[in-house]
Amino acid sequence: MRWLSAVLCLAAKDVRHELRTREALASMAVFSLLTIVLFHFGFSDLGQEATVFAPGALWVTFTFASMIGLARSFSVEEINGCLRGLLLCPHDRSVIFAGKMLGSIASVGAVSTVALVLFVVLFNLPIFSMLWLVWIVMLLGVVGVTAVGTVFSAMTIGTRMRQTLLPVLVLPIILPLVVFGMQTTAKIINSATTGSAPVAEIAGGIVGMLLFDVILTTAGIMTFEHVVVE
């Protein structure tokens, strides 16, 4: 109980901070919009069918946008020695990990949701009936990406290259999750457009992503204490 309230307290602090400054939210949202514009000129303007490139474009947008949010997750704690203050709290290190992860899930999840809706509208994707399912798959992606990203965000503030390094570190690790997410999203979009839903395959994809999330989050909790030792 005490663990959970501390985690929620830390996550609420991050959400409050984000709502007041809106720095990460704004840059993530604008970045997503710019990516959508680029995908328009790169694919749909060149005659590609939106339903074909949408899964890939969606996940690329969300993955890269989340890097912006994750990079800020720990760099804001560097100011005025906030990280030291956090570490001095009489709590387990896993509290910091879970709280930070939850805060990132909130901001990255919010932006991804907006990006998803804009995607559907701007590319006229006929998937309104299945939108909730795409959203769930996307949130499962957000969980895995933030689990890995939280550990590496704490790590990169201690390197010379700082946050520049974050995507380089995170992307190879989350690749299986993103690939799985793209495949599942493609199946959902395909079933929404053709009308025949391969329920077992989609369910399998979602279970697989859940499994990835559990593994990545466990790895994150287990290794995080080694990252913030000072």
């Binding site: 890995v148 550990v151 790590m155 390197t159 570190l169 690790i173 990545l216 790895a219 290794t223 990252v227």
Partner: peptide
């Protein structure tokens, strides 16, 4: 850092 990254 290296050890954490190599493990994950």
């Amino acid at each position: 850092f290296g050890a954490v990254y190599a493990t994950i």
